[in-house]
Amino acid sequence: MELVVFLITALVSVACAIAMILSKNAVHSALFLVLNFSAVAILYLLLHAPFLAMIQITVYAGAIMVLFLFVIMLLGAEQGEGNDPIRWQQPVAIVLGLLLLAEGGLVFFRSGNIIPTPGNGTAFPTDPGATGGIAELLFTKYLLPFEMTSILLLVALLGAVVLTIKSREKEGAS
């Protein structure tokens, strides 16, 4: 049963990822990406991580992609521009993508079973739905990366504010 669900979900997520890259219309691309995110959320559920699955849908499929759609619609950028202004990035992206795939494959085949089962792994909360376990790990074992991520987000937020202030000053001067 689990295998069947996994196969269908994996197929959907890969197909959506490919369709997202290939579709000409930016809104269609965004929709395929939403479907891909949802499929990934189901994969998380299969890995006994319901909390992560729900956050994946709320944050990525819900909030971020709505923002994407909003920007695409507001700019009227559905069809995109004729030719890519940064031509060199396409080959580089292909090479880097293949490298990432190779690395992932290597890690996967080297370390046998990388999927933790609930209960016996140390870094895995016993009750997958209990946020207490996740919070404890975040604030003890992974405190440094967690705080660094939050500082990074704060800096990005401040950066966005600073950028709008600069453009506003220019408008005032001209």
């Binding site: 809104v27 929709l31 939403v34 319901p50 909390f51 729900m54 956050i55 849908i57 709320t58 499929a61 819900g62 909030a63 709505v66 759609l69 909003f70 619609m73 009750d127 997958p128 739905g129 209990a130």
Partner: peptide, 25 residues
């Protein structure tokens, strides 16, 4: 007995906007 029931509600509500947005577009 869904352990993340509240999050499920939030997730589904956040998906709900697509119908209106896409209908408009």
């Amino acid at each position: 007995g869904i352990s993340v029931g509240v999050l499920f509600l939030l997730a589904v509500t956040s998906i709900g906007v697509y119908g209106i947005t896409l209908g408009g577009w």
